[in-house]
Nucleic acid binder design. Structure first.
Lengths: 341, 341
DNA sequence: TTGTACGCGTTATCAC
DNA sequence: GTGATAACGCGTACAA
């Protein structure tokens, strides 16, 4: 690989000039620029990213940490990631995927992170990843709010989880449903805590109690039940335990589909016997299902884009003030999986 | 941020010793190690990744280039990415997501890539990304074979596309289907060329011609028809043009679902009137569909893992010889979307 | 085992 | 507008 000195020598200019030609931080004369570029092409020279980073202290990359225990993305994750990538590339940033293995490694981080900031998806209570960001002084934005001790302020993007659960419950209760089962996300995620609390609150406000068997949490990846969570819970509660359930709220598309299969195997129908409401539902997947699934549009792509934008503000790439905690709109998309009883 | 000198001073050792404690490239006495680690914790010191990279010439990251024109992942991509990430993390490597915008930027790369190697998904003919890797001397592995001029040898992982198409055609023809429509992937991808050729060959060998309207290619992202490709083509050929079609081969899950919707709107049924076969079908999605969709299991996760393994060989992380071109097994998973006529 | 000088490739900061 | 030189933070020979 050719280096800057080689170019400087052949173009009969100094290193600094070559640097300026590429970085465009200072003007250069046309003549010199042409010469430098010509020699660079000839030598197949490009500035060394690492050396540049060492002095600018910018890696031009942001980290994207995928949540604990959800290694198999749902459409929500996919859309979210798309939003992040697109927005980041807009500012010249790349995205470094970051997976924290469930089994914590002995030496978590034997080196600093080669990133300028991070987007943390779906934090858990006392999320270790966030403590590390905090300690490492790495600017970060979470999707879902932070519940770590010692961390007071931090940027976040989220939907209004309380409003979401209230809307869903209201929607179902207005249609006569009282026995609503909630298949929540993994219980470690703060967003699932928010939603559970709001679910109970919404039910209580209408004078309805929530029995313990009406709320379930997705097991984590290590569990053998991970993939068939929706199926298992539905078979267990509706089939084996014969509990009365007229509506099921499913956290994501996979869970919902899994529930559909269980309902079929129980010789029940949707929405005739059971209504289904999906929280994180991708439009194209909801539509293709039979019946099509009523869901909440959480705008995952917008969540991703917004989180990057906040990060860019923190990094000083985007100027001006910015809201530390942004709420992205969400609304009900009515399809054919909920009926009135 | 504390640096290595600070630690060395406080621990009363030299820089070199601190370096050795962290890199473990040379043995150090217990006593010294303890002292260094203690001071490091106290100072919140971690080695600087960038500085380390500058001298080791390794970034410990691999690039993952997502294909042109398929910004919305299908389950195939998701599974593949999972395989890549998991396998890479096993070797201590991170994954840098790399999207090449459709609109080529004027200055494609004003800097070297901060990666040690790359996995290139679904290359196109004369894929520009591959030329860049080639020029930049970056080791890479493609998923699907390379069709670039000037590039003779290159590592790749793939399924046996010819065998796949022959198996599918045989499967359908054995059930009496002669009028098979193929909704292929984007025509730029080499894998779609392989499959198209094999499709025609398989049909011809049984004495069947393939009319032009029986093969279609997914438009690229910029097209407004991108999202509803399967729906549009089905409505057009079966509905508007009233062509005879008894079976449809869909490239991926989204296309298949989209086809299902069209068939429903045409008041036809699956598999009664039309049989459907999916090439890249995610199990959990195929199963949930009604009827469940017969598909090929391409083992995307295994494709991902294998591609990383080959890359690790190229990088010298994994010792020994290795096959340059690996074929991953694929087999038909029979479900309920194909019938005999 | 430990300490030291030097190299890695670039950018920033001065002079000119 | 351009040239020389000092950082940037770490790894690694080499000498001790």
């Amino acid at each position: 690989m050719a280096k800057i000195d080689d170019v400087a020598r052949l173009a009969k200019v100094s290193k600094g000039t070559v640097s300026n030609v590429f970085s465009q931080k200072r003007p250069t004369s046309n003549e010199v620029r042409e010469r430098v570029m010509s020699v660079s092409r000839q030598l197949n020279y490009v500035p060394n990213h690492t050396a540049r980073s060492l002095v600018t202290k910018k890696t031009m990359a942001i980290g994207l940490t995928i949540p604990h225990g959800s290694f198999f993305f749902s459409a929500f994750h996919t859309q979210f990631i798309n939003g992040v990538i697109l927005e980041a590339s807009y500012y010249g940033y790349r995205v470094l995927l970051d997976i924290i293995p469930l089994q914590q490694v002995k030496t978590p981080f034997l080196t600093s992170y080669p990133i300028d900031g991070a987007v943390v998806m779906r934090p858990t209570t006392n999320d270790e990843r966030i403590n590390l960001m905090h300690m490492g002084q790495i600017p970060f934005v979470t999707v879902g709010h932070v519940m770590n001790e010692n961390i007071e302020h931090s940027s976040s993007v989220d939907n209004d989880n309380q409003q979401i659960m209230f809307s869903i419950c209201e929607y179902l209760m207005d249609r006569g449903h009282k026995d609503i089962m909630f298949l929540n996300a993994n219980e470690l995620m703060t967003v699932s805590i928010d939603r559970r609390d709001s679910f109970i609150k919404a039910m209580n406000e209408r004078g309805l109690d929530v029995a313990e068997h009406m709320i379930h949490h997705k097991p984590d990846l290590s569990s053998s039940e991970y993939l068939d969570y929706g199926y298992e819970e539905t078979m267990n509660i509706l089939g084996k335990q014969k509990k009365k359930v007229t509506a099921i709220i499913a956290d994501d598309d996979r869970t919902a589909f899994s529930v559909l299969n269980a309902i079929k195997d129980l010789n029940l129908s949707v929405p005739g016997d059971i209504s289904i409401f999906v929280i994180c539902g991708d439009h194209s997947m909801m539509v293709q299902s039979n019946p099509s699934l009523t869901s909440m549009d959480l705008q995952p792509s917008e969540l991703g884009a917004q989180s990057v934008r906040i990060l860019m503000h923190q990094l000083g790439v985007l100027p001006g003030d910015f809201a530390e905690n942004v709420i992205v709109e969400s609304k009900i998309i009515e399809r054919n999986s909920c009926s009135t009883i």
